Simulated scan of single mutants.
Amino acid sequence: MFSVAIDGPAGSGKSTIAKLLAKELNISYIDTGSMYRALAYKAAISDIDLENDLEIEELLKNTELSMDKEKIFIDGKDVSGLIRSEKISNLASKISKNKEVRKFLVDYQRKISKEKSVVMEGRDITTVVLPHANYKFFLDASVEERANRRYKQLLEKYGSADLEQVKEDLIKRDEADRTRENSPLKIADDAVVIDTSKESLDQTLARIIKIIRG
């Protein structure tokens, strides 16, 4: 199987690039972040204490996770449209620190990569999930640029947003992702680092495709 691993902080463009790249290569796109969001969503509606390891372990034992193209299901329910709020994003960041949650999802992600060719993106794909991927990329951008991108997304979706709050939330998320004990966000030694701050999506995509196709 053929695999492309993409990591990067929130707002770096990795999700959009990964989708476009998967389409270009005609292979499956796997958004691992949506898996953490889905578990965070179930934890929220189940009133699970994210600081309680026993409650989280019980949650995992009684959870069926599945994906179909870009849709994600929890216990047979399509939750794709319910997991994109800032509240769920913050909960996902918290639940991702849990060792058992990461093991549960890493095992599932590796299983997918053994069944089909993938472009998989997240925060520990190049370092933990697919350390032997055929190609590895780390996308980054300045916090100002990433905040502007997220701000515009929120405006389009909800009609209002606070740019400074968005920036503050990103800084907190970055700190949590980079300092967590289990699988922190970091650059793999053999990953190609791309700063997308001043590049268009088309330019970044073209650069990645050129590397893959030689």
Rank of each mutant, 00 (worst) to 15 (best):
Tyr135Trp: 11
Arg123Thr: 03
Val101Thr: 03
Lys61Ile: 09
Glu58Asn: 15
Asn62Leu: 08
Leu139His: 03
Met35Tyr: 08
Ser142Asp: 12
Ile56Ala: 02
Leu59Asn: 04
Lys136Val: 10
Leu91Trp: 05
Ile48Met: 09
Thr126Glu: 01
Glu115Ala: 15
Phe73Ile: 07
Ala43Thr: 10
Lys42Gln: 15
Glu58Pro: 10
Gly81Leu: 05
Gly81Ala: 07
Glu58Cys: 14
Tyr108Val: 07
Glu58Ile: 15
Lys61Phe: 02
Ser80Trp: 11
Leu60Asp: 13
Leu91Lys: 13
Ser85Asn: 06
Ile95Glu: 01
Leu50Phe: 10
Val101Ser: 00
Ile45Val: 15
Leu50Asp: 05
Leu65Val: 14
Ser46Gly: 09
Asp140Ser: 15
Thr126Val: 04
Ser89Gln: 08
Asn134Thr: 09
Lys94Pro: 04
Ile72Glu: 00
Lys111Val: 00
Glu121Phe: 05
Asp75Met: 07
Gln109Glu: 08
Glu57Asp: 14
Ser66Glu: 10
Leu65Asp: 07
Leu39Met: 11
Ile72Met: 03
Ile56Thr: 06
Ile88Pro: 12
Ile56Tyr: 04
Ala40Leu: 14
Lys97Phe: 09
Leu105Ala: 06
Phe73His: 09
Ile125Pro: 02
Ala141Val: 00
Asn90His: 15
Lys69Phe: 15
Ala92Met: 14
Ile88Leu: 12
Leu65Cys: 10
Phe137Met: 14
Glu64Gln: 07
Arg123Ala: 04
Asn52Gln: 12
Leu54Arg: 12
Tyr36Ile: 08
Glu86His: 06
Lys136Arg: 13
Leu82Tyr: 11
Ala133Cys: 14
Ser85Met: 05
Ser80Ala: 09
Arg37Trp: 09
Asp78Gln: 12
Ser93Phe: 01
Val101Glu: 03
Met120Tyr: 02
Leu59Tyr: 04
Tyr135His: 15
Leu105Phe: 09
Met67Gly: 01
Val101Ala: 06
Lys114Thr: 13
Phe137Ser: 06
Ser85Arg: 04
Gly33Ser: 09
Leu59Gly: 02
Leu59Arg: 04
Asn62Thr: 12
Asp124Glu: 09
Thr127Cys: 11
Arg123Cys: 02
Glu64Thr: 15
Val79Trp: 01
